[in-house]
Design a protein around this nucleic acid. Structure first.
Length: 106
DNA sequence: TGGGTGACTAAGT
DNA sequence: CACTTAGCCACCC
């Protein structure tokens, strides 16, 4: 129980990547996991569910471009504030990955 | 130590 | 383009 989080932990690593995402950009769970050298996209989501309250969770979306389920209204407010490119489809919005996808190696 | 779960992904229908 | 099925990996009890 160290008071300071270790950057060696998978959790801290995920948070670091999410915080490295610039405003107006988004990353998929798979991209974040790939940055960590793993395919644990689900584990990334689990980390966000627990510690996402302290990071820009709205900048992390699914590979399909859909925002977090049951949180799309909250995410939309952030996207509008960050000028994130989104596409509307029959009342439901979707992030334009072709224009908003961010690469950490860039 | 082992089994079940999940803010997921990709492929097929 | 949207829904369904199977696969993966890390975390929790």
């Amino acid at each position: 129980m160290a008071p300071d989080a270790a950057p060696d932990d998978f959790v801290s690593r995920v948070l670091e990547v999410v915080e490295s995402i610039p405003s107006g950009r988004v990353m998929t769970y798979g991209d974040v996991a790939a940055t960590l050298g793993s395919r644990a996209s689900r584990a990334v989501g689990s980390v966000m569910a627990r510690y996402g309250s302290d990071v820009a969770w709205w900048r992390v979306i699914r590979a399909s471009g859909h925002p977090l389920i049951d949180h799309e209204s909250r995410a939309l407010e952030h996207y509008r504030a960050e000028s994130t490119p989104v596409k509307w489809s029959n009342g439901v919005f979707r992030v334009d990955l072709a224009a908003a996808r961010h690469s950490p190696a860039e």
